[in-house]
């Protein structure tokens, strides 16, 4: 099972976190990690700890905001939400991803281009 898992591509974790927050609204770190794992359907190896380092970076860039609140079972947790700058950044990153993944797809399967 573990052999079939792929590591997250370098530089894509920021994009995944931003997209998760856009879809799900405010979430704490554990929620974000679980959501990415669920969406990845166990095909991705997510080192949950790195999610927190990514969150620190995104907060510093003011792409997401952080606020302390209560989790669903009453625990004190830090909730993250997408900012306006984050939304713009997400849009730019998605476009960039589409472009790159399109190029890669074409490189890998030239027949599909026709």
């Amino acid at each position: 099972m573990a052999k079939d898992r792929s590591p997250i591509l370098q530089g894509t974790l920021d994009l995944m976190v931003l997209k998760t927050l856009e879809q799900m609204g405010p979430l704490h770190g554990y929620g974000i990690a679980r959501r990415i794992e669920q969406v990845g359907q166990d095909a991705l190896t997510v080192n949950q700890g790195t999610i927190y380092l990514c969150l620190v970076r995104l907060v510093q860039k003011k792409w997401i905001s952080a606020e302390w609140g209560k989790s669903e079972n009453g625990r004190k947790a830090k909730f993250y939400d997408l900012t306006r700058a984050g939304r713009r950044q997400l849009q730019a990153e998605v476009e960039n991803w589409d472009r790159i993944s399109g190029v890669i797809a074409r490189v890998l399967d030239p027949a599909a281009e026709v």
Partner: peptide, 17 residues
Amino acid sequence: REFAQELETHLALAEEE
């Protein structure tokens, strides 16, 4: 301190699940 607290919360939530 906040970072440590956040990781503790994470562990507690994961453990409960």
